[in-house]
Design a protein around this nucleic acid. Structure first.
Lengths: 164, 164
DNA sequence: ATTTAATTGTTGTGCATATCAACAGTAATG
DNA sequence: CATTACTGTTGATATGCACAACAATTAAAT
C-alpha cells in the first residue's frame, strides 16, 4: 500500500501523469489537502498512544484551563453544537478524566471539572502533542512556521466573518 | 511564565475570556480551524449557486482533464477510497454531466467521460471557483499567498509521506 | 491449461462528526 | 403570574472515511 512518491519510473501510469487542472490552482484545495493529511497523521498518532482524538484533547484542555465551565460554554468555545458535547463528556467521564458536578448557581447546568487522574493524563498528552507538533512542522523554518500560523489565523477569522 | 495572552478588547464577555491553553499553540489546531471555516464558506457558496460541492468539482475537473480515466484512478488521484467514488459518479451521471462507458480494454472497469453539457457546466463553475478563490484570499498579499500555498503543499506532502 | 492471486465496481457496515428539532427542567424577564 | 429564554439530553439525519466482502474479470504462477 506504500505510495513511494516521486519515482516516475513507476509502472503505474494512473498516478503521476494525471492532470489536476484548476484544482492545483485553488488555495482551498491545498488547504484541505494539508489539513486532511495532517489530521489523519495526528489522529493516528494520538489514538495509538493515548486512545485520544484531537476533539477530546481540545475539550480536556479547555476544561483544564477553565474549571467549572458549563457544557455549552465549552461547545461554543470549540465551535460546535452543545448536543455534540454530550457524547464527548460521556466518554471522558467514563474514563475518569473529567467530572460533571451540579452547578451551585444554576440547577440546569453542570460544571465541568478535571479529576486529578485527568490532569496527570492530560499533562502527558499535552507534552507529547507539543513535541509532535514541533517535530511535524520542522519542515518549515522558525520564521516560516510563525508566518504560517499567522496566516492560518487570519484565514480562519476571515472565514468566520463571512459566515451565513 | 509571563506569556499570558493580553486582554483582547472583548466584544462578547462570555465568549472571549476562555483560556484555550496549549490548543492555541498547536499548528494543527489552526490548520483545522482555517480549513473547516474555509470549507464551509466555499461549500455554501457553490452549493447555493451550482448545487456543487468541492468533492464533485474535483472529480469533474479531473475527468475533464483526463478523459477515459477509470473510477479507481480518479479515487487514487483524489486520495480517497474507490468505494466513495460510486455515489459521486452516480450523482454526476444522474445530472448528465458525466458518462460511464465500458472500457474497451478491461471489461471490469468503466471509463469516465464528460458530456458536452458537463463541459459547459464545469467551465462556468471553474471560472467562478477561481474568482472566488482569489477574492477570498485577498487578505493575503500576493507574496504571502504564494508562500502560503507553497507551505501547504509541503505540509500536505509531508503528511502524505508518513502515512501508515 | 489450470489453478491461484489480484483488481474492478459495487454494496454494506461501522465510526466519528455535524446539524437540527424537540423535550423536560430550570432560570430570567415582563 | 405568564411568557420567554436557556440547560442538558435524545433522536433523526447527513456526511465523510475506512474497511470488509462480493461477483465479475484479468493477471500471474505453476
Amino acid at each position: 500500500m506504500g505510495f513511494a512518491v516521486k519515482t516516475d519510473d513507476d509502472a503505474k501510469p494512473g498516478d503521476a501523469d494525471i492532470d489536476f487542472g484548476t484544482l492545483h490552482e485553488l488555495t482551498g484545495y491545498w488547504l484541505r489537502r494539508a489539513q486532511l493529511n495532517t489530521y489523519r497523521n495526528v489522529r493516528n498518532f494520538f489514538f495509538d498512544e493515548f486512545e485520544m482524538t484531537p476533539g477530546l484533547f481540545g475539550v480536556l484542555e479547555i476544561v483544564f484551563r477553565n474549571p467549572g465551565l458549563t457544557q455549552t460554554a465549552v461547545a461554543n468555545a470549540m465551535g460546535n453544537d452543545r448536543s455534540a458535547m454530550v457524547a464527548i463528556i460521556d466518554k471522558l467521564e467514563k474514563r475518569g478524566l473529567i467530572e460533571r458536578r451540579p452547578s451551585p448557581v444554576d440547577r440546569r447546568s453542570k460544571a465541568l471539572y478535571m479529576t486529578t487522574q485527568g490532569e496527570a493524563f492530560q499533562a502527558r498528552v499535552r507534552s507529547r502533542a507539543l513535541q509532535h507538533n514541533q517535530q511535524f512542522f520542522d519542515l518549515l523554518t522558525v520564521e516560516e512556521h510563525q508566518q504560517f500560523v499567522d496566516m492560518l489565523k487570519r484565514v480562519a477569522e476571515r472565514a468566520d466573518e463571512s459566515r451565513c
